[in-house]
């Protein structure tokens, strides 16, 4: 019976695992208000609303309130998010609820993450004026990560992405910069609520220590050795608390492939 219910490690891609575990992370937020960022979080949320939290109130930074798309949106501006929503306004109405403290969780991606859960989605390199690699910008990430009561982060697990320190602090994690000096302080000290509660990568689920606020491996996906996670992390990450994640169910994969993204628009397979 086991083999029928659960998929085996080789049955899915790392990107699919990231989406499925991301979707599961939203289960406790049924009935709550969440703001969903562009990219993989949109697909994971779409899957979650089908499987785990049909009554999650999804707001989008482009002003859709209680959006409930029938098809996975390709971006936060997709007409698929407008259809059937309670209210369709614009970015002010989409983002201001964050600052007012009304958003229970945010779900975002990034390009780099550091051990305190700070994200970089602006540039890679040392010279801002001539960056080695330009990225997407703050987009909504700085606002979502700054003000949601809890933030969930998802991105692929690569050594060059998970670092001691990010090149540009776009989205505040637990230890942030207090200007004008740029001293590292706890986020409460600059008046920010919330903070990152989990980072779902393509290898496992990382959380942040209650005391030190430093990232550790909480769960590794089936078929992934926690040592591999350590090797693919740009700082010396604690794997002593790591346990294997509950395996992916065949039904989750079926819904992802046949219902959530049948045309593979998100290129997860």
């Amino acid at each position: 019976m086991m083999s029928e219910k659960f998929a085996r490690a080789g049955d899915y891609t790392a990107a699919e695992a990231m989406i499925v575990y991301g979707a599961r992370m939203l289960a406790p937020f049924d009935g709550k208000i969440g703001i969903i960022g562009i990219g993989a979080p949109l697909l994971a949320t779409h899957l979650a609303k089908i499987l785990y939290c049909p009554d999650m109130k999804m707001i989008v930074e482009t002003g859709q309130a209680d959006a409930d798309p029938e098809e996975v949106p390709i971006s936060i501006m997709d007409s698929r998010l407008t259809y059937g929503s309670s209210w369709q306004m614009g970015d002010p109405e989409g983002l201001f609820p964050l600052v007012r403290g009304e958003v229970d969780f945010g779900f975002i991606g990034g390009a780099q993450i550091d051990k305190y859960g700070n994200l970089n989605s602006t540039f890679i390199g040392t010279d801002y004026n001539k960056p080695h690699k330009r990225l997407a910008g703050t987009a909504g990430a700085v606002d979502i990560g700054g003000f949601a009561k809890a933030t969930i982060i998802t991105m692929a697990h690569q050594k060059r992405r998970i670092l001691e320190k990010v090149d540009y602090l776009t989205t505040p994690g637990w230890m942030v910069k207090k200007w004008p000096e740029g001293t590292m302080v706890r986020r409460e000290e600059v008046g920010l609520p919330g903070g990152p509660i989990a980072f779902i990568s393509s290898m496992g689920i990382m959380r942040f220590d209650d005391e030190t606020k430093i990232m550790y491996v909480d769960r590794y996906f089936s078929g992934v050795d926690p040592k591999t996670i350590k090797e693919n992390t740009g700082f010396d990450i604690d794997i002593s608390r790591a346990r294997e994640a509950d395996p992916i169910e065949r039904e989750e994969l079926r819904v992802l492939r046949e219902v959530a993204d049948p045309l593979n628009i998100y290129r997860t397979r």
Binding site: T138, V142, G146, K177, L192
Partner: peptide, 9 residues
């Protein structure tokens, strides 16, 4: 309070 704590500042 937007962007406090980030490199935008």
């Amino acid at each position: 309070r937007a962007t406090l704590g980030s490199d935008v500042l």
